[in-house]
Simulated assay, not measured.
Amino acid sequence: MAVAQRTALPAQRGAGWNKLAEKIVAHAFLIAISVIFMVPFFWMVSGSIKTGADLNAFPVVWFPKTLTLENYIAGLQVFPFARYLFNTLVICAFSMLGAALSSSFVAYGLSRIEWRWRTPLFVVILSTMMIPFYVTMVPLFTMFRAIGWTDTYLPLIVPHFFGVPFYIFLLRQFFLSIPKEMSESARMDGANELVIYWRIILPLAKPALAAVALFQFLTSWNDLLGPLIYLSDADSYTLSLGLTFFRSEYSSQFGPLMAASTVVVIPVIVVFFFAQRTFIQGITLTGVKG
């Protein structure tokens, strides 16, 4: 017995060292890949606080010798950041609200209510994800122009109040993981489906709703094609669209261009940093039951 224990100890230690070595190699590889992806971002941020001499220096100056905020001052004077930020936040806020409410409502009907055609309808909804936006772009523009919605925010907001297939899928998977006994007990107490949806299911689905809201925020914040199609008034531009025109007009002024790009990117990083735990929890729990 004692001989067997002494023989097993070195084997366990060897297995432990092998696992540790595997973790070190895996983390080293991931860190190396992360550094590769971080280099362009670091170059943009450092370039926004460099002088013109450091930006055009050869060999490349990675760390600025002299810090300056002139690029931000020059960039934000030409680039109406406050106005474009307000426009973008309006679109993001209403799009998040519409996507979360409509998608959760549809997902509730597909997951918590027993009816004959819910599975075929869910398949049809998922199949619409295979249709590229470019296929429906012209018909949608024609329709919105016919009803007088062009050069307004309505084409960028209203469609999200009719459900988004990807969000419906995520929320349906999350709703399936909630015990049905909770809904059945509420029905026995006299609650209808709307009460169950609003007072029981939605409070329990906060992580999934937060994930949907964050997804939609990032989508609306980074959207360029939608505003480019529907907005023609410069005062109605979003940040992504305004930055595109800023780049086309001041492409040779790298310092102000990097400063404006940094200002546009930073809010996304801040939002994701504070919401990452809820976001990851919502995405993870959507695959518990299907």
Results as ranks from 00 to 15, higher is better:
Gln173Cys: 09
Val212Lys: 04
Ala205Cys: 13
Leu225Cys: 10
Leu156Lys: 00
Pro207Trp: 09
Leu224Thr: 05
Asp233Met: 14
Arg172His: 12
Ala146Met: 13
Leu171Asp: 02
Met137Trp: 10
Ala211Pro: 09
Met137Asp: 03
Gly226Cys: 14
Asn222Cys: 10
Asn192Trp: 00
Phe166Lys: 04
Val158Asp: 01
Thr152Glu: 07
Pro165Leu: 13
Ile147Asn: 09
Ser183Ile: 13
Leu156Trp: 10
Val195Trp: 03
Tyr230Leu: 05
Trp198Cys: 05
Leu224Lys: 00
Asp233Thr: 14
Phe175Lys: 00
Gln216Gly: 04
Phe133Pro: 01
Ser248Thr: 15
Ala186Val: 10
Phe144Asp: 06
Val212Thr: 02
Pro207Phe: 03
Pro203Trp: 11
Ala234Trp: 13
Ile147Phe: 09
Arg172Ile: 02
Met143Thr: 12
Leu204Val: 11
Arg145Asp: 07
Leu209Asp: 03
Leu170Lys: 13
Ile147Asp: 01
Gly190Ala: 06
Gly190His: 00
Arg145Phe: 07
Phe144Leu: 11
Pro203Leu: 00
Tyr153Arg: 07
Leu154Glu: 03
Ser185Ala: 15
Ser240Leu: 08
Trp149Val: 00
Thr136Gln: 10
Ser240Asp: 04
Asp151Arg: 07
Phe246Gln: 05
Val164Lys: 07
Ala213Gly: 08
Thr244Arg: 13
Ser185Pro: 07
Ile168Asp: 00
Ser220Arg: 07
Arg187Tyr: 00
Ser232Ala: 11
Pro227Cys: 05
Ile157Gly: 00
Pro207Ser: 08
